[in-house]
Design a protein around this nucleic acid. Structure first.
Lengths: 350, 350
DNA sequence: CTGTTAGCGCCTTCAG
DNA sequence: CTGAAGGCGCTAACAG
């Protein structure tokens, strides 16, 4: 206020600044700042005067300035392959619920499953000085590792349980989950399996599931009737994959679809073709989306903690930012949910 | 660099600052800034020297500082009811594709369909000085209007075509689209209809669809067999609604579900109950999600431009930020896609 | 085309 | 518990 400044009129914005609130409350700017950020450090009467002035002026603190000065942005960068896949939407919901409760904002980026795009996003998000970063998977471009190494902020990798996370990690064993799916099929008496999975290039989750599938085959002495079919998640792709398996290798008696959307598409194709599920062919999915429990027949699948991955990643980040020392690796549970699309010897859940 | 500064060692972060890049390139800080932000204003040789220094140091500009100084944040606040509903995920994809291309970042907030939460989010996002805001619908809390009025940044409302938008608007007529759905049912010879729609409190899209439904009833001389059933989008809720209609008002011969997830759930329930679709009962949905074309029978629905709403909202925002004067109201097209879940007199599309 | 100067709005540090 | 001084890292304005 003292010095006019050349740029005072640069912005046409009629934003209220902290000085104006301070003047109205009869205190200094820093007291307003404290009343808002660390209320317990301010006398109650003073605080109320400040809050009233804030109310009267409609003051909205400029967080850009605050973050710059304090070096804490209360912003978290989140990178997912695509929000369009509901498993990631659920994760974002979990993140958002916990973070917004704590006054944090989410900066969202979508990599489209490309490590290069992911690296660009990491760079772009780091430029915003986020308090932390939540990313997907454990397979990153070299540049991403370099950037994250230099960044010196908490990073949570999600959906995996890699041996050596970049920093922190919340996920589950995709390999064990896929193994469990195969175990379920084996228990149902299925012997000739096929695998339909998301494109595995740069996708450690898909790769892990394939590894679990292979381990299951070996462990239970089952055979694979054709090489894994890689398909992006969509009902149509699931239907096409089912058709391909049935036509190319009719002796196949069960298919593991590494996500429920593909599996549901396959189930619908079975209906169109009058293929009997689970007797002619068994179908097991992955994720336990709502569609799994609603399909006819109801889809056997592997339930994974989609929402909790996000919620826990957020909590982990917040604890770390609060200075707590935490166990940096959280491995959550999955569960095979036996329903009607697979035969089973005994009626319980694996 | 001249003055040591008391806080130099406050942050443990080893971030590279613009001064270091400048020194390495043998230029001043402002030249580095220009080489990065307005490259055409810098001599090529100088520019290359700067870019090399940037490369060598791994410099990532601090956008917080840049935004504060320039009063432009290159950030867009986006508020949706929930990312979990794939129609909004598609919108976000459209926004993200266009905005990230232009170097903008998305700040995401989820209102959970609550106007109060929305107002809080608007306030929280405004604190980040976004370049613009993209929000959902046209029904907002009073506080939201106050905040937006004062904010003096471009705002795009999406999914509606209200008479008087806050600022800009990209959407379609939910009322006309619902009317078209009823017209389609009327053309198929259906006479006794029911409506299943998202909870209408604070949801102008759902309300608009109900209005269009009512207008259709009147226009085509149809009757409504029971009051609208309000249900949040889920397959289960669709199934339950179907059951309720069938049991309470068996003479109902067609149901308009105001979203495809509900409709698909109903279709699955019809299968379980052996209710013949489209003869015993006709089912029409809304949105044209992938599930509509893959269901058995394939679901008749109203296709709406989910992705394009986002992409166009982003383009509108960018043009406005570039100073172009634009038509602030964009009304996109919808289309009834006739498939197998409804009878039709003639085989063409309405 | 490039540099100097000053300040964006807030918060940290230090003093009282 | 409150205030004064100064700087966070960058870019606008102006000068050369």
């Amino acid at each position: 206020m003292a010095s006019p400044g050349k740029r005072t009129s640069r912005s046409g914005s009629n934003k209220v600044r902290i000085e104006e609130v301070a003047r109205l409350a009869g205190v200094s700017a820093i007291t307003v700042s404290r009343a808002l950020n660390t209320p317990q450090k301010v006398n109650e009467a003073t605080r109320n005067a400040v809050l009233k002035a804030v109310e009267d002026t409609g003051y909205i603190p400029n967080r850009l300035a605050g973050s710059l000065a304090s070096n804490r942005s209360r912003t978290v960068g989140v990178i997912v392959p695509t929000v369009t896949n509901s498993i990631f939407a659920d994760k974002i919901k979990g993140l958002s619920d916990v973070l917004s409760e704590a006054g944090y904002q989410i900066l969202l980026g979508q990599s489209g499953y490309s490590p290069e795009v992911e690296a660009e996003l990491v760079s772009a998000l780091l430029a915003q000085s986020p308090s932390g970063l939540v990313i997907t998977g454990s397979a990153h471009a070299l540049r991403t590792h370099t950037l994250l190494g230099r960044a010196d902020i908490p990073v949570v990798e999600t959906w995996t349980n890699a041996e050596a996370p970049v920093d922190m990690q919340v996920g589950f064993s995709n390999e064990d989950a896929a193994f469990a799916a195969v175990a379920h099929l084996a228990a149902g008496g299925y012997r000739s399996l096929a695998l339909v999975v998301a494109p595995m290039v740069h996708n450690d989750r898909a790769l892990g599931r394939k590894r679990g599938f292979d381990r299951g085959l070996a462990h239970f002495g089952l055979r694979q009737t054709l090489p894994p079919i890689e398909a992006e998640f969509s009902l149509r792709n699931g239907a096409d994959a089912l058709a391909r398996v049935i036509e190319a290798q009719p002796q196949t008696d069960a298919i593991f679809f590494a996500n429920d959307v593909l599996a549901a598409g396959a189930l619908l194709e079975c209906r169109r073709r009058n293929v009997a599920v689970p007797d002619r062919i068994g179908i097991i999915g992955f994720d336990d989306l709502e569609i799994a429990s609603e399909m006819v027949p109801r889809l056997t699948t592997v339930a994974v903690p989609r929402y909790d991955i996000g919620a826990n990643a957020a909590r982990m980040l917040l604890r770390r930012l609060a200075g707590e020392t935490i166990q940096p690796k959280l491995t959550l549970d999955f569960e095979v949910v036996a329903r009607e699309s697979t035969r089973r010897t005994c009626g319980d859940r694996v």
